[in-house]
Each structure stands twice: as C-alpha cells, then as structure tokens.
Design a protein around this nucleic acid. Structure first.
Lengths: 235, 235
DNA sequence: CTTTTTCACTTGTACGTACAAGTTTTTTGT
DNA sequence: ACAAAAAACTTGTACGTACAAGTGAAAAAG
C-alpha cells in the first residue's frame, strides 16, 4: 500500500522536473540538501536520484551534482535522423488533422486491449518536414479517458510528448515497434511528394506510458531516401 | 586504477554466466552467500547484483533470488518478428560466406573510426529463413584484431553474439541503427526470392561492445512482407 | 598579481545494523 | 494424514557512519 520513501522523493522530483521547475542543464538539490529537506538518510536520497538517473531524467557528475538531462536522448526511440536532434533547425510539423474524437482504425497494426476498444478514441495526424521536404506522415490514436480536456489544449512547444509530461505528468515508459518496407499508396505518395510505388518505411508503434490507461498507437510512413530513420541504444 | 569491489564481484559473476556456469533460469548465489564468499557486506553484494540486473543478465525476485535471464530480450535490438523469440522453431540460417579475411566495404554506411580503417577486417554473410522463406540477408564486418582465431572456430549454437560472449567474453553494450526502405537490387531480390524492385527494409547497424577494439558493422536487407522487423524498449 | 595550497562542497564506495516483505520448508497442532 | 503455524530462507527498504575522489572557490604563499 504505502510507497517506499525513495520512490516518493523520486516522484516528487520527477514532477518538479516535468513542471519545468528545473531546466535542462540545471542541477537538482544535492544529496545532503535532500536529506535535510525530507529528513532522510543519504542512502535514501541516493536511491531516489539513482532511479531518476535510470529513467533518464538526470545525469550524475561526481564532484558537481545531478544535472537535468534532455530525456529524449535516453529513450531508445526511433527518430528521423536530423529530426528531433536538430531541434527546430529546418524542422517543421503541420497538422493534417488536429486532435479530434476519432475511431479505433482498423489500420492500427499492434493489438489493442479489450478495454481500449470500448473507450472513445482521440486521433490526430501530422506531416513532418525537414527543410521543405515532407519526410514523415504520422497517424496517432489513443484512449480519450486518460487525457481529459485534451482537444482544447495546445501542444507544449509543438511536442505531444512534452504535453503529456508537463500537462498530464505522464511519461513514456516503453515502446513496441514493427517495421515494414512497403510501396507508397496514392495518399501517402501525394503527401510525401513521391511517386506512387516508391518504397516507404512503415513503422507501427505502441507507446506504453506511466498511466496504465494510456497507450499511444501510431502508424508512421517515412520517406527514407534523404533522411533515414535512426535509433541508438546504450547500456 | 583499482576497481571498486562491487565491480570486481559483478565482473566475476558475469564471466561465470558467460562461461555457462549458470544456465538460463538458474539462480545465482544469494546476497548473503556472496557476502561470506567474498568477505563483503550486503550493500556491496547488492550493488554488484543490481549492476548485473541493469545489464540484463539477471532478474531479481523478492523472496526467491537472482535468476539468470536470456539477455537478448533486454537489449533494444531490432529482431525479425518470430525470429529470435521463436528460437529454433522454423528458423534456419545459412552462410553465404563463412567468416573470412575481407575488406572494409564501401557499402558500410555507418562511419568507421580511423583506427579501424587501418586494421584487417573479417567478414561473413548469412541468409536467414523463417520456414522456407528467406527473410533477411545479413552482411557483417568487424576488425580482426579483437578476435584472434575467429576464422577457425565454429559459432556457439550458431549464434555470433553467443560466440562473442562465451568464447571471447565480449558483450554488446549498445547499437546505432539507420533504417531505409529501398528497392531490392538484383542480388538481394534473387537471394530473398522476390522480384527486383520490391521494397526491402535496409538496416545499417553498428554494434558497440565491451571491447573498445571491437565494433560490429552490419548491413541487413529484410523482406518484411510476411515477417516484419520488431523491437521493444522498456524502462 | 599569480601561483599554490587549502577548504568546502559535490558524488562514489563500503562498512554495519535492523526490520519489512515475499517464498519455501519445516515443525507443530488437530 | 492433513492443515495451520512457525521458522528459515530470500530480496527490499532504511537507518547511520566513514572515508575516497572529483570539483571549484577561497585563502595563503610567492
């Protein structure tokens, strides 16, 4: 029932980070300060910080402290090369469909849970550019129950994940992906400005989150001829 | 200079696991046994085991112990769906080129380090089947300096990674990937038994290992029409 | 003023203790 | 013989202490 102390501290700090109380590159309170502040021992403070490190929120520098980190880099997610890394630089995102009440599409490849099938569904669709070249079409579905008021709100910094984190305190905890090379259909060809029949990389994604109610299902269609999709994984 | 105790214990246990002294599903000595055996405190023993857990070698079960785990599942590597998971089941691997002295191919997409360019190179090539359908062509390059005697030895259980682990005590520590959807060229079309011009998933891979001398570069060509490539990532 | 040393901070390692909580075996009671 | 209770194990959490090692600023020495 009761949560361990280190996890309480961990979650407290996490929510502060998510709320933007600490910016990327800034330092968290030191272990000893946390000890005083929460009346705990250093063992417990360290455990909380170690967990935040494992989750990718901070990096720990001996002699200096615990520094806030850009979390995206720690997740082994597939990213369009020169996309999220080169933030802002020549990158553009256009809504093809703003968030709306939608239907669980039969094109979603990764299996939905039964409970999800019986809940209303939100949907949005975007087209992503590098320079003026459209490189990725992105279709997203997720259950409406976890994100009340989502349709009215704008995206934080134009980022869906940042919105989840800062407005709903929901983090991505994992992902499952399936990758296929397919011929572009007419719709995708038109959107990505290629000939129909060009090979596209089709990525079917399921994101798990810290909210058990919320999984995000995405179908991505990528023109990889100029900008391949990349990812990195490190222990 | 001197390594911390917990890391010595960690490495000792790791090498035992790699040598096969503990099989998958078996339990490591308990924390208290390690304390006696190495004259350390439980804090240190726990730290060693926690590290092995982070590396994916074991899972820790309260009340039971630390159980050896199939490590591949913990790495966020791309796998052909129904391939490594369904071990042995309908899965076949054929050498198109047994390990040999080769040349750093210009087709390697991810950049080589300068030192690597100046070392001799080993090469091998395989074709992988699910059922009787060829689904993946796999070309691999790596520096010869790290793996002396590699050409003579056979693969452990037909697995390159298991060979690295058990014969050379080298582990995969990370990977960088680039993904492209491409038309099949004639060679790949013939090998994968598809028409030239069929879309193939082209994966360019660089594996980092625990040996700083060894990186493995791979170029994979996958027919994803029946068996998509998948991966999972969890925190 | 510049260089060196010291000091005050940070995180890292390691010791020891105690009890909670989950699992399995043994003992006890009926 | 069977069921419940106890004991004996496991890992998990949390306390407290001490010193090592890395960093940066302040103080001392030149």
């Amino acid at each position: 029932m009761k949560k361990p102390k280190y996890r309480q501290i961990q979650n407290y700090l996490k929510s502060k980070i998510q709320q933007g109380a600490f910016k990327v590159g800034e330092y968290l309170p030191s272990e000893n300060e946390l000890c005083k502040q929460f009346s705990i021992t250093r063992t417990t403070a360290r455990k909380a910080l170690d967990e935040l490190f494992k989750e990718g929120f901070i990096e720990r520098l001996q002699g200096k402290g615990s520094r806030i980190r850009e979390r995206r880099q720690s997740l082994g997610l597939l990213t369009v090369k020169g996309f999220s890394e080169a933030v802002g630089e020549n990158v553009k995102t256009v809504f093809l469909q703003k968030p709306m009440k939608g239907n669980w599409d039969e094109k979603i490849i990764l299996p939905l849970s039964e409970t999800e099938k019986n809940t209303p569904c939100y949907y949005f669709e975007r087209l992503r550019f590098v320079g003026n070249i459209p490189v990725m079409r992105e279709k997203n579905w997720f259950s409406a129950v976890a994100l009340r008021g989502f349709l009215k709100a704008d995206f934080v910094d134009g980022s869906f994940f940042k919105t989840l984190s800062q407005k709903y305190f929901i983090e991505i905890t994992g992902s499952t992906q399936e990758l296929r090379a397919e011929f572009a259909d007419e719709k995708n060809a038109a959107l990505l400005k290629v000939n129909a029949g060009t090979p596209l990389l089709h990525i079917s994604l399921k994101f798990s989150t810290s909210s058990p109610k919320l999984n995000i299902y995405s179908e991505l269609y990528c023109n990889t001829s100029s900008y391949p999709v990349g990812n990195s994984y490190f222990l």
